[in-house]
């Protein structure tokens, strides 16, 4: 098996720059004896949007959870630059919205983020504006449309001013218009200086907003390749097969 143990050196980032981004080394995570992450290594650029692609079951969501600190791996470590540590936000594929109004969700997140009371209104207005949620701020969060709910979940994760925002398939259940609004929001967040890691199956979306793609297959990272090179000339056989649609699992 020629590809076993093969490490993909992130290209074209110069090593010095790569060292200041997010690095995942030798992560191993088991569930009931199965290694779902099997020595995952990758290094991502410190800026912009990086996409995490791969077939179902490749370990993308688990990897996000490890990076976010929700899972403790059996082996390996996640290294991030000092400014990111403790400032990681995660938006789940199916966001859990509190049983409150949209505004109530954001206010509570700001409270949990220890934002001083006198600053909360300003921050709230800022988040509402960013998510374009002003007009529906008083709606019960659980009555929002899929796109509105996803934007709320994303801006809610910004309450703690994360330096690294992990977003798991935010547009999987959205119509094209809803997806477009979410893409615009993620683009703006990245431009404002927050590193975004996005799990996506949508090559169109990846080509529109991501600067690089990390490709996962069976719990390992097969390559990290900048856009648009990844889509036109993937380096690993697995990524080629995936893009041709011949890998399902």
């Amino acid at each position: 098996m020629p590809e076993r143990g093969r490490r993909i050196i992130p290209f074209p980032l110069p090593p010095a720059l790569a060292a200041t981004g997010l690095q995942v080394e030798g992560i191993r995570l088991e569930r009931e004896g199965n290694a779902l992450l099997d020595g995952t290594d990758l290094a991502l650029s410190p800026h912009g949007i990086s996409a995490l692609m791969g077939p179902n079951g490749a370990g993308k969501t688990l990897l996000l959870r490890v990076i976010a600190g929700l899972e403790t791996p059996e082996a390996g470590e996640v290294r991030m630059p000092a400014h990111m540590r403790g400032r990681v936000g995660l938006v789940f594929q199916r966001p859990v919205l509190l049983r409150r109004s949209l505004r109530g969700n954001l206010t509570h997140a700001l409270r949990l983020a220890r934002v001083p009371r006198q600053d909360r209104n300003d921050r709230l207005a800022e988040l509402l504006e960013l998510g374009q949620l002003d007009r529906i701020a008083d709606r019960p969060a659980r009555r929002l449309s899929g796109g509105e709910a996803q934007r709320l979940a994303i801006v809610r994760a910004l309450a703690r001013r994360p330096a690294l925002l992990l977003v798991d398939e935010p547009t999987a259940h959205l119509d094209p218009r809803g997806a477009q609004a979410v893409e615009a929001l993620l683009g703006r967040i990245a431009r404002d200086g927050t590193k975004v890691v996005l799990v996506s199956h949508d090559t169109g979306q990846v080509s529109r907003i991501a600067a690089e793609v990390a490709f996962l297959h069976r719990g390992r990272c097969r390559e990290v390749t900048p856009m648009p090179a990844f889509l036109s000339a993937p380096q690993s056989a697995e990524a080629r097969a995936y893009l041709e649609g011949s890998i399902l699992l």
């Binding site: 929700l70 995660l90 859990v96 509190l98 509570h108 983020a113 809610r156 994760a157 703690r160």
Partner: peptide, 25 residues
């Protein structure tokens, strides 16, 4: 079970988690 991960990511302490659950429930 539904809220746990979300509240952890929002930075809630155990006390705040309980308070949030009590209010929402």
């Amino acid at each position: 079970a539904e809220y746990d991960d979300t509240l952890r990511m929002l930075g809630a302490s155990p006390t705040e988690t309980i308070a949030t659950l009590l209010w929402d429930a």
